[in-house]
């Protein structure tokens, strides 16, 4: 009896400890796997920058910082400047956000807070479908539907606002303006679907507390729920900004592919991603190829700078570190 009791007393802790060590082993393995998964992202980013940096060496040495501030792009004489492409990329993306953010956030608030569940579900399904449409389709719709429509809408608009530099000059259909609109349509589903999820995740208690304090439905939404979800909504805007900056196919089909900087939004322009896609295949000569690769590096840097600036802006406005 005694011996058997002592045996169980001895073996139980041993079993427990064995279980614990095994669990700790599993823990360690899981930790390692998760860490490995996370570090591949860093490794891929680092490799990407490394490759772009190495392969753009020729053009970086030849043009230095001038690459960013000159606007001649002449493959024949070997003169390369990225400014018109940077301008086109930034302006089309800004225009896209200007249109899509109010639209997207507004729609997300409606779907998450105000709409009856049936309508909300049906609309959400449509939005997810929109997000899955390939960009070449958006480009084709841009050419065959949007541009003919703009060609009838813009002239009367020009007669009213034509005195503004941003609406001056002839309008050929393909333009920075058209590209901005196509991009806005493309990114709006991202803003809506991510923002909606974020808004739905806001704790119910907060809404109930606001309503209990006598707030109306809209007051509780606008003053309590939206501020709580702010960081997430801004995150969704970043995601769509990144997509707008890097969009290639749809942009090149409607932007006019002209490397010139013009004040008018109705003038044709060019974007970084579009010129890389258009010219890389036929680029003859090392300097030409290297300049196109440097454009890729510039696009990467541009994304980081804009994201960084936006993050700083949030920090400044919220006062605290947004975690």
């Amino acid at each position: 009896m005694a011996s058997s009791a002592s045996r169980t007393e001895n073996t139980r802790p041993r079993r427990v400890s064995r279980f614990l060590t095994r669990a700790r082993g599993v823990e360690a393995v899981a930790h390692g796997v998760a860490f490995l998964a996370a570090s591949t992202i860093v490794a891929i980013t680092a490799l990407l920058v490394f490759e772009l940096w190495i392969n753009s060496a020729l053009s970086r040495h030849k043009f230095g910082w001038d690459f960013l501030f000159t606007s001649t792009w002449d493959p024949i004489s070997g003169q390369f400047g990225a400014l018109p492409f940077i301008f086109g990329t930034v302006v089309t993306s800004a225009l896209a956000l200007l249109i899509s953010v109010p639209l997207g956030v507004g729609a997300a608030i409606f779907l998450a807070e105000l709409a009856p569940p049936k309508i909300s579900d049906a609309l959400t399904f449509c939005i997810e479908l929109l997000a899955a449409v390939p960009s070449v389709i958006y480009g084709l719709i841009g050419i065959f539907v949007l541009i003919p429509a703009l060609q009838t809408i813009v002239p009367p608009l020009k007669s009213v606002f034509g005195f503004l530099p941003i609406f001056s000059g002839p309008f050929y259909g393909v333009s920075i303006f058209s590209a901005g609109i196509v991009l806005a349509v493309m990114v709006v589903p991202f803003i809506i679907s991510v923002s909606r999820e974020i808004l739905l995740a806001v704790p119910r208690d907060l809404r109930e507390a606001a309503l209990a304090l006598g707030a109306t439905r809209w007051e509780s939404t606008w003053d309590v729920v939206v501020p709580f979800a702010k960081t997430g909504i801004v995150g969704s805007i970043f995601l769509s900004l990144a997509r707008a900056l890097g969009e290639t196919m749809a942009v090149t089909m409607v932007i006019g592919n002209t490397p010139r900087i013009q004040a008018s939004l109705l003038a044709p322009g060019y974007s970084i991603a579009a010129v890389i896609a258009n010219e890389f295949r036929e680029a003859a000569g090392d300097l030409y190829t290297s300049s196109l690769i440097e454009l890729g590096l510039v696009l990467f840097a541009l994304t980081i700078v804009i994201n960084g600036a936006a993050r700083l802006l949030i920090l400044a406005t919220t006062g605290k570190a947004a975690s």
Binding site: T72, P75, I76, I143, G256, P268
Partner: peptide
């Protein structure tokens, strides 16, 4: 001023992708 190549620095005009792109742009404008 411009020269000869597969891509050149076009003094004027707008760019369209491939033969169908140029044909389409001319047809529409």
């Amino acid at each position: 001023k411009v020269g000869n190549g597969a891509s050149v620095n076009w003094p004027v005009g707008i760019g369209a992708k491939a033969n169908p792109g140029v044909a389409g742009q001319v047809k529409n404008t």
